[in-house]
């Protein structure tokens, strides 16, 4: 049976993992490679690395991080941040990333989804959507780290992304991000009903139960979180044990090391 995935997310700034609240108050946390190894040992199913600065000066540092992570952990990982062109896809995939996440760049140029899917396959094109509820009770897409309201309807954008060839959607609820009061279940569910590709829920994990709620059959296929893992509030192994006890299908990590 296909397992629900637990995905720690690592925001990387100049080679360090950082965590901010609501895209602000950024604090230094740890070395990305050692954190990746730790999460792998704890049983994380995948990892996500975002290059949050994504400037030309720091790009090579980030590519080095990607390559070091690929050398150290044998689980899949997604890379995002600063991906604007096919060549950016090529660089991170060549460095050892499995999937590439695009957000603002896809809104500016939806053809990027299509071109990347043709060239590298849908399986590595992840459409990341930052959404916020508007006054009419619908969800709109925001770009540039939650700063710009595009006016695009989040459900329509998810469908469009699937049609263009995205292989997975990360849905990040701006309102719940960093609040630790739980994922936005109604938003995640609405997106899941709009498309037939895997959905990763993001934003709001604070307690073990939050993961359980969002990993119910009709909601998300995977749950992404950052600070609860980085600050050791929840361990991935403890979380997966609880999920298993509560009937959520999760991968049990092999106890015997391969060596």
């Amino acid at each position: 049976m296909l397992a629900k995935r637990i995905i720690p997310c690592l925001d990387v700034d100049k080679g360090r993992v950082v965590k901010g609240k609501k895209f602000q108050n950024i604090q230094d946390v740890a070395d990305p490679v050692s954190l990746a190894k730790k999460y792998n040992e704890d049983g994380a199913d995948e990892l996500v690395f975002y290059d949050i600065t994504a400037s030309n000066e720091t790009r090579n540092i980030f590519i080095d991080v990607v390559e070091q992570v690929a050398a150290e952990v044998a689980i899949p990982f997604t890379v995002g941040g600063g991906i604007r062109a096919i060549d950016d896809f090529h660089k991170v995939l060549r460095a050892g990333a499995d999937k590439v996440s695009i957000n603002s760049a896809a809104v500016d140029n939806p053809r990027l989804i299509q071109e990347a899917a043709w060239k590298f396959g849908s399986q590595c094109v992840v459409l990341s959507i930052d959404a916020k509820e508007n006054k009419d009770g619908n969800w709109t897409v925001y770009t540039n780290g939650g700063r710009i309201d595009t006016g695009l309807d989040a459900l329509e954008w998810a469908k469009r992304g699937e049609e263009l060839g995205a292989g997975e959607i990360v849905i990040n609820a701006i309102d719940t991000d960093g609040e630790k009061n739980g994922y936005n279940l109604s938003l995640t569910k609405a997106i899941a009903q709009s498309v037939n590709i895997p959905i990763v829920a993001s934003g709001g994990a604070g307690k073990l139960e939050h993961f359980q709620d969002v990993l119910q059959p009709d909601v998300a296929d995977a749950a992404l979180a950052a600070s609860v893992f980085h600050y050791n509030e929840i361990s991935v192994s403890q979380l997966k044990q609880l999920l298993a006890e509560n009937g959520v299908p999760v991968r049990k990590r092999r106890v015997t090391p391969w060596n």
């Binding site: 296909l2 037939n196 296929d221």
Partner: peptide, 13 residues
């Protein structure tokens, strides 16, 4: 088979 989500993505047994 598109009665399931495609791509088949993740850990399976």
């Amino acid at each position: 088979n598109d009665t399931v989500k495609v791509p088949h993505m993740g850990w399976n047994t």
